[in-house]
Simulated scan of single mutants.
Amino acid sequence: MNLTLFDLDHTLLPLDSDYEWGQFMCRVGAVDAVEFARRNAEFYEQYQAGTLDPVAYLEFAFGNLARFPRAKLDSLHRQFMEEVIRPALRPAALDLVRRHRDAGDLVLIITATNRFVTAPIAQAFGVEHLIAAEPVLDDSGDITGAFRGTPPYGPGKVVNLRHWLNARGQTLEGFATSTFYSDSQNDIPLLSAVTHPVATNPNARLSAHAKAQGWPILNLFND
């Protein structure tokens, strides 16, 4: 069995699901549009620049989710999927994931975005396994605002992947081939840890690094 890993935002999706969730919450009036949009934009710019403090961002993201009962959040997310995510599912990305699944690979999405936002998106891609930022839930299943574990951001993706594989009795080095598709320089630690890194729809910094390293570059969203 080979291991195939996908980043999500700007890799399989031509958008950032975390940022778009925030924009959606502003549009539907669930949050203070002006203040939330300002903070959301600040964190997004930091992410793109590679300067994001993942702990500060998760405190912001989960703190906002904690204001709503889970039933309300799930209802909002269904609307988000129909209005924002499903129209952004591109055949090239769906086909890429499907080819790896059909080949019998162990397929995993690994993303810095939280599990609440990304679990239904992973399902839409037909991917069973997901590593994402994990919220703490109370006894009723509501999000408390806290998070657990190491944020899967930058080197944290390597930490989370190794922990996940160890729990399955596997190691990254135990796969004959390990492939990781990502768009961002933030993922260079994990791209460097696999046998087959693929810079996918790469931003300028990752594109330059990939060319210097001789990594393949894949563009899924040329349309």
Rank of each mutant, 00 (worst) to 15 (best):
R78A: 14
A112F: 02
L108F: 03
E83P: 06
A93C: 04
D102P: 10
V117C: 06
V127G: 09
V84A: 07
T113E: 07
D105G: 01
L130N: 08
V127W: 04
A132P: 14
I121A: 06
G126T: 00
I121Y: 03
G126M: 02
E83K: 15
R86I: 06
L89Y: 10
A122F: 09
F116A: 00
I121L: 04
R70W: 10
L96D: 11
K72Q: 14
I121C: 01
I85M: 07
P120N: 06
P87N: 11
D105C: 10
L96Q: 10
P120Y: 00
A124I: 15
G104N: 08
R78Q: 15
A71W: 08
M81G: 03
V136L: 02
I85R: 07
P87V: 03
R101N: 11
G104E: 10
A71S: 15
A93K: 06
R115G: 12
F80L: 12
I85D: 12
E134M: 05
R99D: 09
H77D: 02
L130M: 10
L108A: 04
Q123F: 10
A112H: 07
P135F: 09
D95Q: 11
L89T: 11
R98Q: 01
D74T: 08
R101S: 03
A132E: 12
T113A: 06
I121E: 12
R98G: 13
A119W: 13
R98K: 08
R78S: 07
A119D: 03
F125A: 09
A71H: 14
I85W: 00
A122M: 11
E83N: 03
T118K: 14
V107L: 07
I109W: 11
I85C: 02
V107F: 05
E83C: 02
A133K: 13
